[in-house]
Design a protein around this nucleic acid. Structure first.
Lengths: 227, 227
DNA sequence: ACAACATTGTCGGCCCCGCGACATTTTTTT
DNA sequence: AAAAAAATGTCGCGGGGCCGACAATGTTGT
Protein backbone atom coordinates (compact mmCIF):
# COMPACT_ATOMS: atom_id res chain seq x y z
CA UNK A 1 0.00 0.00 0.00
CA UNK A 2 2.83 2.29 0.92
CA UNK A 3 4.42 1.41 -2.36
CA UNK A 4 1.29 2.01 -4.34
CA UNK A 5 0.95 5.50 -3.05
CA UNK A 6 4.56 6.29 -3.62
CA UNK A 7 4.28 5.24 -7.20
CA UNK A 8 1.25 7.35 -7.70
CA UNK A 9 2.75 10.41 -6.13
CA UNK A 10 6.27 10.20 -7.42
CA UNK A 11 5.39 9.79 -11.04
CA UNK A 12 5.05 6.11 -11.74
CA UNK A 13 5.58 6.45 -15.44
CA UNK A 14 2.88 3.96 -16.26
CA UNK A 15 0.14 5.91 -14.59
CA UNK A 16 -1.03 9.40 -15.43
CA UNK A 17 -1.31 11.97 -12.68
CA UNK A 18 -4.40 14.03 -11.99
CA UNK A 19 -3.30 16.95 -14.06
CA UNK A 20 -2.60 14.77 -17.04
CA UNK A 21 -5.89 12.96 -16.72
CA UNK A 22 -7.68 16.28 -16.51
CA UNK A 23 -6.50 17.16 -19.97
CA UNK A 24 -7.79 13.92 -21.39
CA UNK A 25 -11.17 14.21 -19.68
CA UNK A 26 -11.66 17.52 -21.40
CA UNK A 27 -11.09 16.30 -24.90
CA UNK A 28 -12.36 12.75 -24.53
CA UNK A 29 -15.63 10.96 -24.10
CA UNK A 30 -16.33 8.68 -21.17
CA UNK A 31 -17.59 5.24 -22.12
CA UNK A 32 -18.48 2.16 -20.11
CA UNK A 33 -17.94 -1.42 -21.17
CA UNK A 34 -19.29 -4.46 -19.34
CA UNK A 35 -17.03 -7.35 -18.47
CA UNK A 36 -16.06 -9.62 -21.34
CA UNK A 37 -16.40 -7.02 -24.05
CA UNK A 38 -13.95 -6.32 -26.85
CA UNK A 39 -12.83 -2.69 -26.97
CA UNK A 40 -10.86 -2.96 -30.14
CA UNK A 41 -9.81 -5.79 -32.40
CA UNK A 42 -6.82 -6.58 -34.57
CA UNK A 43 -7.18 -5.17 -38.05
CA UNK A 44 -9.25 -2.17 -37.02
CA UNK A 45 -8.02 1.30 -37.76
CA UNK A 46 -6.15 2.60 -34.73
CA UNK A 47 -7.67 6.04 -34.60
CA UNK A 48 -8.10 6.52 -30.87
CA UNK A 49 -6.37 6.12 -27.56
CA UNK A 50 -7.90 5.22 -24.24
CA UNK A 51 -7.44 6.11 -20.61
CA UNK A 52 -8.65 3.48 -18.20
CA UNK A 53 -10.61 5.06 -15.40
CA UNK A 54 -11.95 1.96 -13.74
CA UNK A 55 -11.47 -1.76 -14.26
CA UNK A 56 -8.91 -3.94 -16.00
CA UNK A 57 -8.22 -4.56 -19.65
CA UNK A 58 -6.29 -7.36 -21.24
CA UNK A 59 -4.22 -6.85 -24.38
CA UNK A 60 -3.93 -10.00 -26.45
CA UNK A 61 -3.35 -11.46 -29.85
CA UNK A 62 -4.92 -14.43 -31.52
CA UNK A 63 -2.68 -17.27 -32.54
CA UNK A 64 -3.34 -19.16 -35.75
CA UNK A 65 -5.00 -21.96 -33.80
CA UNK A 66 -7.35 -19.57 -32.05
CA UNK A 67 -5.67 -19.25 -28.67
CA UNK A 68 -5.63 -15.84 -27.03
CA UNK A 69 -2.12 -14.84 -26.13
CA UNK A 70 -1.77 -11.93 -23.72
CA UNK A 71 1.24 -10.13 -25.14
CA UNK A 72 1.09 -6.94 -23.13
CA UNK A 73 0.37 -7.07 -19.50
CA UNK A 74 -3.02 -6.39 -18.04
CA UNK A 75 -3.72 -2.67 -18.02
CA UNK A 76 -4.75 -1.08 -14.74
CA UNK A 77 -6.87 1.94 -13.88
CA UNK A 78 -4.93 5.13 -14.56
CA UNK A 79 -3.04 3.62 -17.48
CA UNK A 80 -3.46 4.45 -21.11
CA UNK A 81 -3.90 1.93 -23.87
CA UNK A 82 -3.89 1.86 -27.62
CA UNK A 83 -0.92 4.22 -27.63
CA UNK A 84 1.68 2.32 -29.60
CA UNK A 85 -0.50 1.44 -32.53
CA UNK A 86 -2.17 4.81 -32.71
CA UNK A 87 1.17 6.56 -32.84
CA UNK A 88 2.64 4.09 -35.24
CA UNK A 89 0.78 2.74 -38.21
CA UNK A 90 -2.83 2.69 -39.03
CA UNK A 91 -4.09 -0.61 -37.71
CA UNK A 92 -4.37 -2.56 -34.50
CA UNK A 93 -2.31 -5.69 -34.27
CA UNK A 94 -3.92 -6.87 -31.08
CA UNK A 95 -7.18 -7.08 -29.22
CA UNK A 96 -8.23 -5.27 -26.08
CA UNK A 97 -10.86 -6.98 -23.97
CA UNK A 98 -12.34 -6.10 -20.62
CA UNK A 99 -11.85 -8.54 -17.76
CA UNK A 100 -14.11 -6.58 -15.44
CA UNK A 101 -16.60 -3.78 -15.86
CA UNK A 102 -14.58 -0.92 -17.25
CA UNK A 103 -14.89 2.84 -17.61
CA UNK A 104 -12.77 4.45 -20.29
CA UNK A 105 -12.02 7.90 -21.60
CA UNK A 106 -11.81 7.71 -25.36
CA UNK A 107 -9.75 10.29 -27.23
CA UNK A 108 -9.49 10.48 -30.99
CA UNK A 109 -6.09 10.28 -32.59
CA UNK A 110 -6.38 13.77 -33.96
CA UNK A 111 -7.32 15.31 -30.63
CA UNK A 112 -4.59 13.36 -28.92
CA UNK A 113 -1.91 14.46 -31.35
CA UNK A 114 -3.13 18.03 -31.05
CA UNK A 115 -2.81 17.75 -27.31
CA UNK A 116 0.72 16.42 -27.61
CA UNK A 117 1.68 19.30 -29.85
CA UNK A 118 0.14 21.79 -27.53
CA UNK A 119 1.27 20.43 -24.18
CA UNK A 120 4.81 19.66 -24.89
CA UNK A 121 5.69 17.78 -21.74
CA UNK A 122 3.01 15.22 -22.50
CA UNK A 123 4.97 14.01 -25.48
CA UNK A 124 7.81 13.14 -23.19
CA UNK A 125 5.42 11.51 -20.79
CA UNK A 126 4.07 9.30 -23.54
CA UNK A 127 7.61 8.40 -24.52
CA UNK A 128 8.30 7.48 -20.91
CA UNK A 129 5.22 5.33 -20.71
CA UNK A 130 6.26 3.47 -23.81
CA UNK A 131 9.81 3.22 -22.52
CA UNK A 132 8.61 1.58 -19.33
CA UNK A 133 6.48 -0.84 -21.30
CA UNK A 134 9.38 -1.66 -23.56
CA UNK A 135 11.35 -2.82 -20.58
CA UNK A 136 8.44 -4.85 -19.40
CA UNK A 137 8.09 -6.48 -22.78
CA UNK A 138 11.80 -7.21 -22.89
CA UNK A 139 11.66 -8.69 -19.43
CA UNK A 140 8.79 -10.86 -20.63
CA UNK A 141 10.85 -12.14 -23.53
CA UNK A 142 13.68 -12.87 -21.17
CA UNK A 143 11.43 -14.84 -18.88
CA UNK A 144 9.85 -16.84 -21.67
CA UNK A 145 13.24 -17.79 -22.97
CA UNK A 146 14.96 -18.58 -19.70
CA UNK A 147 12.43 -19.99 -17.33
CA UNK A 148 10.32 -23.07 -17.09
CA UNK A 149 6.58 -22.93 -16.77
CA UNK A 150 6.43 -23.11 -12.94
CA UNK A 151 8.75 -20.11 -12.64
CA UNK A 152 6.76 -18.13 -15.13
CA UNK A 153 3.51 -18.85 -13.35
CA UNK A 154 4.94 -17.99 -9.95
CA UNK A 155 6.30 -14.74 -11.29
CA UNK A 156 3.03 -13.87 -12.97
CA UNK A 157 1.20 -14.25 -9.68
CA UNK A 158 3.75 -12.10 -7.90
CA UNK A 159 3.61 -9.41 -10.55
CA UNK A 160 -0.16 -9.30 -10.64
CA UNK A 161 -0.45 -9.16 -6.89
CA UNK A 162 2.04 -6.32 -6.79
CA UNK A 163 0.12 -4.44 -9.41
CA UNK A 164 -3.44 -4.95 -8.46
CA UNK A 165 -3.58 -7.11 -5.39
CA UNK A 166 -5.30 -5.86 -2.27
CA UNK A 167 -4.14 -6.76 1.25
CA UNK A 168 -6.41 -9.28 2.96
CA UNK A 169 -5.51 -10.57 6.40
CA UNK A 170 -2.11 -12.11 5.96
CA UNK A 171 -2.06 -12.19 2.19
CA UNK A 172 -2.56 -10.31 -1.05
CA UNK A 173 -5.79 -11.04 -2.82
CA UNK A 174 -6.00 -10.90 -6.58
CA UNK A 175 -9.47 -9.74 -7.40
CA UNK A 176 -9.24 -10.44 -11.09
CA UNK A 177 -11.30 -13.49 -11.88
CA UNK A 178 -8.99 -14.98 -14.44
CA UNK A 179 -9.64 -18.44 -15.79
CA UNK A 180 -6.81 -20.92 -16.01
CA UNK A 181 -7.02 -20.56 -19.74
CA UNK A 182 -6.46 -16.82 -19.45
CA UNK A 183 -3.43 -17.43 -17.31
CA UNK A 184 -2.09 -20.02 -19.71
CA UNK A 185 -2.24 -17.45 -22.49
CA UNK A 186 -0.18 -15.03 -20.43
CA UNK A 187 2.75 -17.32 -19.75
CA UNK A 188 2.76 -19.51 -22.79
CA UNK A 189 1.52 -22.83 -21.55
CA UNK A 190 -1.65 -24.89 -21.51
CA UNK A 191 -4.72 -24.76 -19.35
CA UNK A 192 -4.07 -28.18 -17.81
CA UNK A 193 -0.58 -27.25 -16.77
CA UNK A 194 -1.85 -24.11 -15.06
CA UNK A 195 -4.51 -26.05 -13.19
CA UNK A 196 -2.06 -28.58 -11.94
CA UNK A 197 0.62 -26.06 -10.98
CA UNK A 198 -1.80 -23.83 -9.12
CA UNK A 199 -2.79 -26.84 -7.10
CA UNK A 200 0.85 -27.57 -6.40
CA UNK A 201 1.26 -24.03 -5.13
CA UNK A 202 -1.85 -24.38 -3.05
CA UNK A 203 -0.70 -27.64 -1.52
CA UNK A 204 2.55 -26.05 -0.40
CA UNK A 205 0.45 -23.20 1.01
CA UNK A 206 2.03 -20.39 -0.96
CA UNK A 207 -1.35 -19.52 -2.39
CA UNK A 208 -4.98 -20.16 -1.52
CA UNK A 209 -8.18 -20.19 -3.54
CA UNK A 210 -11.18 -18.17 -2.48
CA UNK A 211 -13.86 -18.84 -5.02
CA UNK A 212 -12.11 -18.09 -8.26
CA UNK A 213 -9.89 -15.50 -6.68
CA UNK A 214 -6.35 -16.27 -5.72
CA UNK A 215 -4.69 -15.10 -2.54
CA UNK A 216 -0.92 -14.97 -2.23
CA UNK A 217 -0.02 -16.31 1.20
CA UNK A 218 3.74 -16.70 0.96
CA UNK A 219 5.46 -14.65 -1.74
CA UNK A 220 8.87 -15.95 -0.73
CA UNK A 221 7.94 -19.58 -1.16
CA UNK A 222 6.43 -18.64 -4.50
CA UNK A 223 9.57 -16.82 -5.51
CA UNK A 224 11.53 -20.01 -4.95
CA UNK A 225 9.95 -21.40 -8.09
CA UNK A 226 11.46 -18.59 -10.09
CA UNK A 227 14.79 -20.15 -10.91
CA UNK B 1 15.88 -2.99 -52.06
CA UNK B 2 12.84 -1.17 -53.26
CA UNK B 3 11.35 -1.66 -49.85
CA UNK B 4 14.41 -0.47 -48.03
CA UNK B 5 14.40 2.78 -49.89
CA UNK B 6 10.75 3.30 -49.37
CA UNK B 7 11.12 2.89 -45.65
CA UNK B 8 13.98 5.31 -45.56
CA UNK B 9 12.19 7.91 -47.57
CA UNK B 10 8.73 7.62 -46.17
CA UNK B 11 9.69 7.83 -42.56
CA UNK B 12 10.34 4.35 -41.30
CA UNK B 13 9.77 5.18 -37.68
CA UNK B 14 12.71 3.10 -36.54
CA UNK B 15 15.26 5.08 -38.48
CA UNK B 16 16.07 8.75 -38.14
CA UNK B 17 16.12 10.94 -41.20
CA UNK B 18 19.00 13.17 -42.20
CA UNK B 19 17.60 16.25 -40.53
CA UNK B 20 17.10 14.41 -37.27
CA UNK B 21 20.56 12.92 -37.38
CA UNK B 22 22.01 16.35 -38.06
CA UNK B 23 20.73 17.55 -34.72
CA UNK B 24 22.33 14.69 -32.90
CA UNK B 25 25.67 15.06 -34.66
CA UNK B 26 25.81 18.60 -33.39
CA UNK B 27 25.36 17.82 -29.75
CA UNK B 28 26.95 14.39 -29.63
CA UNK B 29 30.40 12.89 -29.88
CA UNK B 30 31.32 10.32 -32.49
CA UNK B 31 32.93 7.19 -31.10
CA UNK B 32 34.12 3.96 -32.69
CA UNK B 33 33.92 0.51 -31.16
CA UNK B 34 35.57 -2.60 -32.57
CA UNK B 35 33.61 -5.80 -33.03
CA UNK B 36 32.87 -7.75 -29.90
CA UNK B 37 32.93 -4.79 -27.55
CA UNK B 38 30.41 -3.96 -24.87
CA UNK B 39 28.93 -0.49 -25.21
CA UNK B 40 26.98 -0.51 -22.00
CA UNK B 41 26.22 -3.11 -19.37
CA UNK B 42 23.31 -3.89 -17.08
CA UNK B 43 23.52 -1.99 -13.84
CA UNK B 44 25.28 1.04 -15.26
CA UNK B 45 23.69 4.44 -14.99
CA UNK B 46 21.71 5.14 -18.13
CA UNK B 47 22.89 8.66 -18.74
CA UNK B 48 23.30 8.69 -22.50
CA UNK B 49 21.63 7.67 -25.71
CA UNK B 50 23.26 6.48 -28.90
CA UNK B 51 22.73 6.84 -32.61
CA UNK B 52 24.22 4.05 -34.67
CA UNK B 53 26.02 5.43 -37.66
CA UNK B 54 27.68 2.28 -38.90
CA UNK B 55 27.57 -1.38 -37.91
CA UNK B 56 25.23 -3.54 -35.86
CA UNK B 57 24.57 -3.73 -32.17
CA UNK B 58 22.91 -6.49 -30.20
CA UNK B 59 20.78 -5.76 -27.13
CA UNK B 60 20.80 -8.62 -24.67
CA UNK B 61 20.36 -9.68 -21.08
CA UNK B 62 22.22 -12.23 -19.07
CA UNK B 63 20.28 -15.14 -17.67
CA UNK B 64 21.08 -16.50 -14.26
CA UNK B 65 23.03 -19.34 -15.82
CA UNK B 66 25.14 -16.99 -17.89
CA UNK B 67 23.47 -17.28 -21.25
CA UNK B 68 23.07 -14.16 -23.33
CA UNK B 69 19.49 -13.62 -24.34
CA UNK B 70 18.84 -11.12 -27.10
CA UNK B 71 15.68 -9.43 -25.93
CA UNK B 72 15.52 -6.52 -28.34
CA UNK B 73 16.26 -7.09 -31.92
CA UNK B 74 19.58 -6.26 -33.48
CA UNK B 75 19.91 -2.52 -33.99
CA UNK B 76 20.78 -1.30 -37.44
CA UNK B 77 22.60 1.77 -38.72
CA UNK B 78 20.37 4.81 -38.44
CA UNK B 79 18.62 3.51 -35.35
CA UNK B 80 18.92 4.88 -31.86
CA UNK B 81 19.61 2.79 -28.79
CA UNK B 82 19.59 3.23 -25.06
CA UNK B 83 16.40 5.26 -25.33
CA UNK B 84 14.01 3.40 -23.11
CA UNK B 85 16.24 3.15 -20.10
CA UNK B 86 17.56 6.64 -20.39
CA UNK B 87 14.06 8.06 -20.47
CA UNK B 88 12.82 5.83 -17.72
CA UNK B 89 14.79 5.12 -14.62
CA UNK B 90 18.41 5.47 -13.88
CA UNK B 91 19.98 2.16 -14.74
CA UNK B 92 20.46 -0.18 -17.66
CA UNK B 93 18.73 -3.50 -17.47
CA UNK B 94 20.48 -4.93 -20.48
CA UNK B 95 23.74 -5.04 -22.32
CA UNK B 96 24.60 -3.58 -25.70
CA UNK B 97 27.41 -5.28 -27.57
CA UNK B 98 28.80 -4.73 -31.04
CA UNK B 99 28.58 -7.56 -33.53
CA UNK B 100 30.66 -5.72 -36.12
CA UNK B 101 32.85 -2.65 -36.07
CA UNK B 102 30.56 0.16 -35.07
CA UNK B 103 30.48 3.93 -35.21
CA UNK B 104 28.21 5.68 -32.76
CA UNK B 105 27.10 9.17 -31.92
CA UNK B 106 26.91 9.48 -28.15
CA UNK B 107 24.59 12.07 -26.62
CA UNK B 108 24.30 12.74 -22.92
CA UNK B 109 20.92 12.42 -21.27
CA UNK B 110 20.86 16.08 -20.41
CA UNK B 111 21.66 17.24 -23.91
CA UNK B 112 19.14 14.81 -25.32
CA UNK B 113 16.35 15.97 -23.04
CA UNK B 114 17.20 19.56 -23.84
CA UNK B 115 16.95 18.76 -27.50
CA UNK B 116 13.57 17.14 -26.98
CA UNK B 117 12.31 20.20 -25.17
CA UNK B 118 13.61 22.48 -27.82
CA UNK B 119 12.65 20.55 -30.93
CA UNK B 120 9.20 19.54 -30.09
CA UNK B 121 8.53 17.19 -32.93
CA UNK B 122 11.43 15.01 -31.89
CA UNK B 123 9.57 14.03 -28.75
CA UNK B 124 6.85 12.59 -30.88
CA UNK B 125 9.42 10.90 -33.06
CA UNK B 126 10.94 9.21 -30.03
CA UNK B 127 7.51 8.12 -28.92
CA UNK B 128 6.93 6.66 -32.36
CA UNK B 129 10.23 4.82 -32.29
CA UNK B 130 9.35 3.28 -28.97
CA UNK B 131 5.86 2.51 -30.18
CA UNK B 132 7.24 0.60 -33.13
CA UNK B 133 9.59 -1.32 -30.88
CA UNK B 134 6.78 -2.13 -28.50
CA UNK B 135 4.95 -3.85 -31.29
CA UNK B 136 8.06 -5.71 -32.23
CA UNK B 137 8.55 -6.85 -28.67
CA UNK B 138 4.93 -7.92 -28.44
CA UNK B 139 5.25 -9.82 -31.67
CA UNK B 140 8.29 -11.53 -30.23
CA UNK B 141 6.36 -12.59 -27.15
CA UNK B 142 3.63 -13.92 -29.37
CA UNK B 143 6.09 -15.95 -31.40
CA UNK B 144 7.83 -17.40 -28.39
CA UNK B 145 4.53 -18.47 -26.94
CA UNK B 146 2.92 -19.87 -30.05
CA UNK B 147 5.59 -21.34 -32.22
CA UNK B 148 8.00 -24.19 -32.09
CA UNK B 149 11.69 -23.74 -32.48
CA UNK B 150 11.87 -24.40 -36.25
CA UNK B 151 9.27 -21.72 -36.91
CA UNK B 152 11.04 -19.23 -34.71
CA UNK B 153 14.34 -19.84 -36.42
CA UNK B 154 12.85 -19.59 -39.89
CA UNK B 155 11.15 -16.35 -38.96
CA UNK B 156 14.30 -14.92 -37.46
CA UNK B 157 16.18 -15.55 -40.68
CA UNK B 158 13.42 -13.93 -42.70
CA UNK B 159 13.28 -10.92 -40.42
CA UNK B 160 17.02 -10.41 -40.39
CA UNK B 161 17.29 -10.75 -44.12
CA UNK B 162 14.54 -8.21 -44.57
CA UNK B 163 16.26 -5.79 -42.25
CA UNK B 164 19.87 -6.06 -43.16
CA UNK B 165 20.20 -8.59 -45.92
CA UNK B 166 21.77 -7.60 -49.20
CA UNK B 167 20.74 -9.08 -52.55
CA UNK B 168 23.25 -11.53 -53.96
CA UNK B 169 22.50 -13.34 -57.16
CA UNK B 170 19.28 -15.16 -56.53
CA UNK B 171 19.20 -14.73 -52.77
CA UNK B 172 19.50 -12.41 -49.81
CA UNK B 173 22.80 -12.56 -48.00
CA UNK B 174 22.99 -11.91 -44.29
CA UNK B 175 26.32 -10.32 -43.67
CA UNK B 176 26.17 -10.54 -39.91
CA UNK B 177 28.52 -13.24 -38.75
CA UNK B 178 26.35 -14.60 -35.99
CA UNK B 179 27.34 -17.76 -34.20
CA UNK B 180 24.79 -20.47 -33.64
CA UNK B 181 24.96 -19.60 -29.99
CA UNK B 182 24.01 -15.99 -30.75
CA UNK B 183 21.07 -17.20 -32.78
CA UNK B 184 20.00 -19.58 -30.05
CA UNK B 185 19.88 -16.66 -27.64
CA UNK B 186 17.58 -14.76 -29.97
CA UNK B 187 14.91 -17.39 -30.33
CA UNK B 188 15.12 -19.15 -27.00
CA UNK B 189 16.67 -22.46 -27.84
CA UNK B 190 20.05 -24.19 -27.62
CA UNK B 191 23.10 -24.03 -29.79
CA UNK B 192 22.82 -27.66 -30.89
CA UNK B 193 19.25 -27.26 -32.02
CA UNK B 194 20.20 -24.24 -34.13
CA UNK B 195 23.06 -26.13 -35.75
CA UNK B 196 20.88 -29.03 -36.63
CA UNK B 197 17.96 -26.94 -37.89
CA UNK B 198 20.14 -24.75 -40.04
CA UNK B 199 21.43 -27.90 -41.66
CA UNK B 200 17.90 -29.07 -42.21
CA UNK B 201 17.11 -25.80 -43.92
CA UNK B 202 20.27 -26.10 -45.97
CA UNK B 203 19.46 -29.63 -47.05
CA UNK B 204 16.07 -28.54 -48.32
CA UNK B 205 17.85 -25.70 -50.11
CA UNK B 206 16.01 -22.84 -48.52
CA UNK B 207 19.28 -21.44 -47.27
CA UNK B 208 22.94 -21.81 -48.09
CA UNK B 209 26.13 -21.24 -46.11
CA UNK B 210 28.91 -19.09 -47.45
CA UNK B 211 31.65 -19.14 -44.93
CA UNK B 212 29.81 -18.17 -41.77
CA UNK B 213 27.34 -16.04 -43.63
CA UNK B 214 23.90 -17.30 -44.45
CA UNK B 215 22.14 -16.73 -47.73
CA UNK B 216 18.39 -17.02 -48.00
CA UNK B 217 17.62 -18.87 -51.21
CA UNK B 218 13.93 -19.62 -50.87
CA UNK B 219 12.00 -17.42 -48.46
CA UNK B 220 8.75 -19.19 -49.25
CA UNK B 221 10.05 -22.60 -48.36
CA UNK B 222 11.43 -21.10 -45.19
CA UNK B 223 8.12 -19.49 -44.41
CA UNK B 224 6.50 -22.91 -44.53
CA UNK B 225 8.20 -23.71 -41.26
CA UNK B 226 6.40 -20.83 -39.61
CA UNK B 227 3.22 -22.57 -38.58
C1' DA C 1 -35.24 -25.18 -11.31
C1' DC C 2 -33.27 -27.19 -15.10
C1' DA C 3 -30.68 -27.32 -18.99
C1' DA C 4 -26.74 -25.74 -21.41
C1' DC C 5 -22.39 -24.31 -21.02
C1' DA C 6 -17.94 -23.00 -19.04
C1' DT C 7 -14.40 -24.04 -15.92
C1' DT C 8 -11.63 -27.05 -13.20
C1' DG C 9 -9.31 -31.53 -11.87
C1' DT C 10 -6.70 -35.55 -13.23
C1' DC C 11 -4.40 -39.00 -15.84
C1' DG C 12 -1.30 -41.18 -19.46
C1' DG C 13 0.96 -41.27 -23.73
C1' DC C 14 4.03 -39.09 -26.56
C1' DC C 15 7.26 -35.99 -28.66
C1' DC C 16 9.92 -31.94 -28.95
C1' DC C 17 13.90 -30.29 -27.54
C1' DG C 18 17.23 -29.38 -23.64
C1' DC C 19 21.48 -31.28 -22.23
C1' DG C 20 25.79 -33.77 -21.87
C1' DA C 21 29.35 -35.79 -24.53
C1' DC C 22 32.65 -35.92 -27.97
C1' DA C 23 34.69 -35.42 -32.72
C1' DT C 24 35.72 -32.23 -36.23
C1' DT C 25 36.51 -27.92 -38.25
C1' DT C 26 37.47 -23.01 -38.19
C1' DT C 27 39.38 -18.94 -36.14
C1' DT C 28 42.46 -16.55 -33.18
C1' DT C 29 46.61 -16.09 -30.62
C1' DT C 30 51.53 -16.15 -29.97
C1' DA D 1 53.34 -22.63 -38.12
C1' DA D 2 51.98 -24.45 -34.07
C1' DA D 3 49.06 -24.21 -30.22
C1' DA D 4 44.97 -22.68 -28.01
C1' DA D 5 40.41 -21.39 -28.26
C1' DA D 6 36.07 -21.02 -30.43
C1' DA D 7 32.57 -22.73 -33.31
C1' DT D 8 30.23 -26.45 -35.60
C1' DG D 9 28.31 -31.27 -36.42
C1' DT D 10 26.11 -35.32 -34.51
C1' DC D 11 24.08 -38.59 -31.36
C1' DG D 12 21.25 -40.48 -27.56
C1' DC D 13 19.05 -40.03 -23.30
C1' DG D 14 15.55 -38.15 -20.55
C1' DG D 15 12.14 -35.13 -19.04
C1' DG D 16 8.99 -31.23 -19.14
C1' DG D 17 4.97 -30.21 -20.69
C1' DC D 18 1.58 -30.57 -24.76
C1' DC D 19 -2.45 -32.93 -26.02
C1' DG D 20 -6.59 -35.68 -25.92
C1' DA D 21 -9.98 -37.60 -23.03
C1' DC D 22 -13.27 -37.56 -19.54
C1' DA D 23 -15.31 -36.64 -15.00
C1' DA D 24 -16.65 -33.31 -11.62
C1' DT D 25 -17.90 -28.92 -10.40
C1' DG D 26 -19.43 -24.12 -11.05
C1' DT D 27 -21.92 -20.62 -13.72
C1' DT D 28 -25.34 -18.66 -16.86
C1' DG D 29 -29.55 -18.37 -19.30
C1' DT D 30 -34.56 -18.93 -19.58
Amino acid sequence: MGKENRDLLEGNPLILDEREKERLYKIGATVKYPKGQIIFAAGEVADRVYLIEKGWVRIYRLSSDGREVTVGSIRNPGEMMGLAETLHHGRRTCFAGTISDVTLVVVTKKDFLDLLTEEHYLGLKVAKILAARMREAEAMVHELVCWQVPGRLALLLLKISERCGIPDNGGMKIKLRLTHEDIAGMIGTTRQTVTSLLNTFRREKSIEFQGREIKILDPKKLANWVV
